[in-house]
C-alpha cells in the first residue's frame, strides 16, 4: 500500500471511531422510542404521562406518580446540595489554603464522586432511613400508614442524592468562579470592598451562569440516579402526599420491574425511559447553553 493511501485509510478509521459516540446516541434514542412508543400510541400520551395509577397487571400504565416522585426527590436534593456545594466551591476558589485543598478537600471530593451508588444506597438504608422512620412513627397521623412511616421515601432519597450531586456542583461551580477575570476582583477590592462583599457582589454574579450550569448538571445527575434511590425511596408507585411518603422514581420504575416484565409491560417501561430521556436531553441542553455563556 502506498503511503498516501495508507494515510487516507487511517484517517477513515479514525473518523469511523469518532462517529461511534454519535451512532450510539442515535441508536439509544431510536431503540427506546421504537420500544416505548406503542404504549403512548395505544393509550394516549396524556393518559400515560398524567395517569395517576400504575397497575401493569391490569394494563394501567400511568407514569404521573413516578414523574412527581422524581421531581420531588430531585428538588429536595437541590435544596440541600446546592447551597452546600456552591459554598464549598466558593471556599475552594477564594478562601482555602492551597495545601488543605490539594491534600484533603480535593481527594475527598474525588472519592465522593467515585463511591459507587449502591454503596450510597446501603449507607442510606441503614443510617438515614431508620432515623426518619423513628421521626415518622412519632407523628400520630403518620404512624399507622405503612407508606408514610417506613422511613423510606422522599426525605431519605433527597438527602442521599444531595451528597451524590455534591462533586458535580462543586467542580463545575468552582471552575466558573475561578474563570472570573482577576481584574473584576482587583477592581472591587481597590474600591474598598471587603473580600466577602467582592465575592457576593462581584465574583458570584459574574460566575452565575457557570454556577447555574453546575446546578443544572447536578439536577441531571439526580434525575438519572437509579440504584441509591431504589434502596432508600421505598418505591411505592403512588403520588406522594407528604415528604415522608414512599415514592418511586422514573429510573426506579425501570430498574425494579424490568426483571420480570414482559410484552406490553416491558413497552411501558421503555415509555418510562422515553420520558426520562426527554427530561435529561432538555436539562443537559440547558446546562451546555449555560456553560457556554460568557462570563459577565
Amino acid at each position: 500500500m502506498k503511503k498516501e493511501q495508507r494515510e487516507k485509510y487511517y484517517k477513515l478509521m479514525l473518523l469511523a471511531s469518532a462517529m461511534v459516540a454519535l451512532v450510539v446516541i442515535v441508536l439509544i434514542g431510536g431503540f427506546i422510542f421504537k420500544e416505548g412508543m406503542p404504549v403512548f400510541a395505544k393509550y394516549g400520551l396524556g393518559n400515560v404521562f398524567w395517569g395517576r395509577k400504575w397497575q401493569p397487571s391490569s394494563q394501567i400504565y400511568g407514569l404521573w406518580p413516578m414523574v412527581v416522585g422524581t421531581v420531588y426527590i430531585t428538588l429536595g436534593s437541590l435544596v440541600i446540595g446546592v447551597p452546600l456545594g456552591v459554598l464549598t466551591a466558593i471556599f475552594l476558589a477564594e478562601l482555602a489554603p492551597k495545601k488543605l485543598v490539594s491534600l484533603v478537600i480535593r481527594p475527598a471530593i474525588e472519592l465522593l464522586a467515585g463511591i459507587p451508588s449502591v454503596v450510597y444506597g446501603l449507607f442510606g438504608m441503614t443510617t438515614i432511613v431508620p432515623v426518619i422512620r423513628k421521626i415518622a412513627r412519632s407523628i400520630p397521623a403518620y404512624a399507622d400508614e405503612p407508606t408514610l412511616s417506613s422511613g423510606y421515601g422522599i426525605i431519605a432519597g433527597s438527602i442521599i442524592l444531595s451528597i451524590m450531586i455534591l462533586p458535580t456542583v462543586i467542580n463545575v461551580a468552582e471552575d466558573a468562579i475561578r474563570s472570573v477575570p482577576r481584574e473584576y476582583k482587583e477592581g472591587s477590592l481597590a474600591l474598598g470592598a471587603t473580600h466577602w462583599q467582592t465575592i457576593y457582589r462581584v465574583i458570584v454574579p459574574a460566575a452565575s451562569s457557570g454556577i447555574m450550569a453546575g446546578v443544572v448538571l447536578g439536577m441531571g445527575r439526580a434525575i438519572g440516579e437509579t440504584m441509591a434511590i431504589i434502596m432508600v425511596a421505598g418505591n411505592a408507585p403512588i403520588v406522594p402526599e407528604s415528604i415522608f411518603s414512599s415514592v418511586r422514581s422514573l429510573t426506579g420504575n425501570i430498574a425494579i420491574e424490568m426483571a420480570y416484565s414482559s410484552g406490553e409491560h416491558t413497552q411501558a417501561l421503555f415509555a418510562t425511559g422515553i420520558i426520562l430521556f426527554v427530561f435529561i436531553m432538555i436539562i443537559n441542553s440547558l446546562a451546555m447553553f449555560l456553560a457556554k455563556k460568557e462570563v459577565g
Binding site: L22, V24, I28, T251, F270, L276, I280, M281, I283
Partner: peptide, 15 residues
C-alpha cells in the same frame, strides 16, 4: 453527540 452521551443516565443505557 459525545456530550449528550455523557449525560445519559445509566438505566437508559441499560434499556
Amino acid at each position: 453527540g459525545t456530550e449528550a452521551l455523557a449525560g445519559i443516565p445509566s438505566i437508559v443505557f441499560g434499556l
